[in-house]
């Protein structure tokens, strides 16, 4: 036995190694299954999948890519959070600082923004693909509903993030996008029948969203918390349900 082989054996046979890795790496059917079932991340998958679930022609990879974009925005988002303060006096200056002075700041910001846009495109294409293959049909009806909720959350994630740079593009796009809330029937002060409920500019659906009658510092903080904590948390829970359901119901495909 060569020295190298002996060192390798000593490591793989050690107490520490065996406590972490439960199985060998030789290409045996048992190890192939263990690779998935003994790994918390890969355990999202079943140990075996139907043949066409692997084909890109069938899946377009869109669900997976949407999830990847979510992960990328989460990682780059944490990096951006280190340098950004959701306070009206600082927010824009922090953007400039982040873009010009922080190592990889501009790259992280760009990746965050483009991944967010790509996530929207991918989630639409994913819905289109799932529709085309009829994958919402029994027993997967409920998972389609979870998917629609995730689609809405994706749009809201992107929309709340749109405000954070605190530049002209941000506040006016969010103003235009949120003005609809002002017109909610009964609940918005410009909406039909608002006078019967008593909605007014500082006490209606949009004011609830903005944290005040007009877009301002309070809105920035509110959108920041929605963007960084609340919506990602809800989306993560729904994603867990979404993936779990795929695993339980099996990957859709033609009957054998």
């Amino acid at each position: 036995m060569s020295l190298l082989q002996k060192i390798k054996n000593d490591i793989v046979e050690s107490h520490v190694w065996k406590s972490i890795f439960r199985h060998g790496y030789e290409d045996t059917p048992r190890n192939r299954v263990m690779m998935v079932t003994a790994n918390v991340f890969l355990h999202l998958h079943p140990a075996k999948v139907r043949r066409h679930a692997v084909r890109m022609r069938f899946t377009w990879c869109m669900g997976g890519l949407t999830f990847l974009m979510f992960l990328i925005t989460a990682v780059t988002g944490v990096y951006l959070m280190f340098y950004y303060r959701p306070v009206a006096e600082y927010a824009f200056a922090d953007m400039k600082y982040l873009e010009t002075d922080m190592p990889f700041g501009m790259l992280m910001r760009n990746m965050h923004r483009w991944a967010a846009h790509a996530m929207i495109v991918f989630v639409w294409l994913h819905m289109f693909r799932v529709f085309l293959t009829g994958s919402y049909k029994p027993p997967r009806e409920f998972n389609w509903i979870v998917g629609v909720l995730l689609l809405v959350l994706t749009l809201l994630l992107s929309f709340t993030g749109y405000l954070l740079p605190w530049d002209q593009l941000a506040i006016w796009a969010v103003t235009v996008g949120s003005n609809m809330a002002r017109a909610t029937p009964l609940l918005g002060y410009e909406g039909p029948f608002a006078e019967f409920v008593g909605a007014n500019p500082v006490y209606d659906a949009r004011a609830f969203l903005f944290g005040g009658g007009e877009i301002g510092p309070h809105t920035l903080l509110r959108f920041y918390i929605l963007h960084c904590i609340f919506i990602p948390l809800v989306a993560s829970i729904l994603m867990a349900v979404h993936f779990w359901r795929i695993r339980r119901d099996g990957f859709s495909g033609p009957s054998l």
Binding site: W114, F159, L169, A170, W172
Partner: peptide
């Protein structure tokens, strides 16, 4: 893509200056 195309950043937010047109995302 992120190395080649920069995310937009306009002038600081100014609630008194409405751009025309104001477009949603």
């Amino acid at each position: 893509w992120a190395m080649m195309v920069d995310a937009p950043l306009e002038e600081p937010a100014n609630p008194t200056r409405t751009p025309n047109p104001s477009k949603a995302p």
